[in-house]
Design a protein around this nucleic acid. Structure first.
Lengths: 251, 251
DNA sequence: CGTGCGGTTGAGGGAGATCAACTAAAGTGG
DNA sequence: CCACTTTAGTTGATCTCCCTCAACCGCACG
């Protein structure tokens, strides 16, 4: 189960400069936030933070540490990962639009989150317009990422999806939250931690576990990528890119 | 080409109550908006309003009349429709996050849009926090729709995609912007205007034109749907639903 | 030591893409 | 007005990518 670690302290927060409070000047921070009852919760890998259709009026969250997958499911159980959250990401904000959660949040690793009570946040928003301002910017980025994913899912072949997935990983160690821009420029020589299982990669890209496994194996045999103990490395970025294309796609 | 119809007038705006200015009280509207140089533009069906990677610092838009498709494309030309805008929708807001347009907007029908100059809007946001407030709410709805689409594209089969597409159409004549909620309750007996060509439906759902055509024909033969002069009608909603499932999906 | 879970690999089939021919409707230009 | 082209849509035949089903491996864990 989730565990309340302590009351949240913005001063010590590892992601304060990335949070929705980032625009607040240091000195006013104390005044505005002091009776704001945030608390830091920890979740173990695999735990569910909230579920689709749960009432969202209670709280929104900021991820301080770890990774979280955000999913949606069909009645029969088929599941789509719609987003992967990294440190600094705001999530569970459906309450801002008076809606219940539209998705399910599950910890991919052990995590630490800051819980923001909606009721107090609503008051704070009124008095501190900077919050909405920085929310707008991050919501727009969220939309851009979702649109990028729509293109991935709707228009690409399996090999292309997987190749660009791997290349995105290597762009930034943390860059599980996807923006597709400038995929070309990846020099890509370092190890990147792969936090997802084969079935999670499949659920993210709309593929089966076997298809994911097959392409990975193939590319490892051909020397395009290397994998070791949950980490992955690109050995030949251009070959990988071409592989994605010649294996049925492009031209 | 686009054509400037006139200076925008919020008082006469058909979508004022749905716009980002909807929270502004009537009396302050005049004062806040009066030196705001909005203009109403018209576009003919097929015209492009802006393109991905265009500089977005100039303006954002509100759709007053008509329908617009928002698309993203791969280098080789494959195109995904990521959203369909209806009257009242705000779009082209990438400038709020200091980014260039992430997508392309093309008129599906003759349209009328209100152009909001970014520079002035930025000033107005500072002085009028209600704007950001209502932006937050509508951006969240946008995200929810995108996530719903991710589930459609990533997890569903062709027949399911098409069936729920048709059912969404019939939910609201205007409801080309998709929220998947409560698809069950559709009584669906009226005609709905189908504003999309077969190839556009395909581009929206990640299918080919032929696949779309085949299912439509099949369902028409079976008497589940009827089509006439660009409009579509559901004759047997439960059969349609089942068809989507038995034709390879579900169970 | 067995059991379960994540991953790999193979064989086969089927959903949907591709290629192609054809129809119907709509514009174009004499 | 009619011949011509163009465009959207339908339908068929074929192909192929990816899913499905299945067996199997390695490893962690009780």
């Amino acid at each position: 189960m989730s565990h309340v670690k302590c009351k949240g302290h913005c001063y010590t927060c590892p992601v304060r400069h990335q949070s929705i409070f980032s625009e607040l000047p240091e000195e006013s921070l104390e005044a505005t936030i002091q009776d704001f009852h945030t608390s830091v919760l920890t979740f173990e890998s695999g735990e569910t933070l909230f579920r689709q259709f749960d009432d969202s009026s209670e709280s929104a969250y900021t991820l301080r540490k770890g990774l979280i997958k955000v999913t949606k499911s069909l009645p029969d159980g088929r599941t789509q990962i719609v987003r992967i959250l990294v440190a600094g990401d705001l999530f569970g904000f459906d309450g801002f639009a008076n809606e219940s959660y539209n998705n399910t949040a599950i910890a991919l690793t052990d995590c630490e989150v800051c819980r923001l009570p909606m009721a107090e946040l609503a008051v704070l928003r009124k008095s501190t317009p900077e919050i909405d301002q920085s929310m707008v910017a991050r919501l727009i980025k969220n939309i851009r990422q979702s649109e990028d994913m729509l293109l991935e899912l709707g228009a690409k072949k399996a090999s292309e999806k997987l190749a660009s997935f791997i290349m995105r990983l290597s762009l930034s160690d943390q860059n599980l939250s996807f923006s597709v821009d400038a995929l070309d420029s990846a020099p890509a020589s370092e190890w990147s931690k792969l936090h997802l299982s084969r079935s999670e990669i499949g659920s993210l890209l709309g593929l089966t576990i076997e298809t994911v496994s097959r392409f990975f194996s193939d590319w490892k045999r051909k020397g395009f990528i290397k994998e070791e103990k949950g980490s992955i490395q690109i050995l030949d970025a251009t070959a990988l890119k071409n592989a994605a294309c010649t294996q049925g796609a492009c031209n």
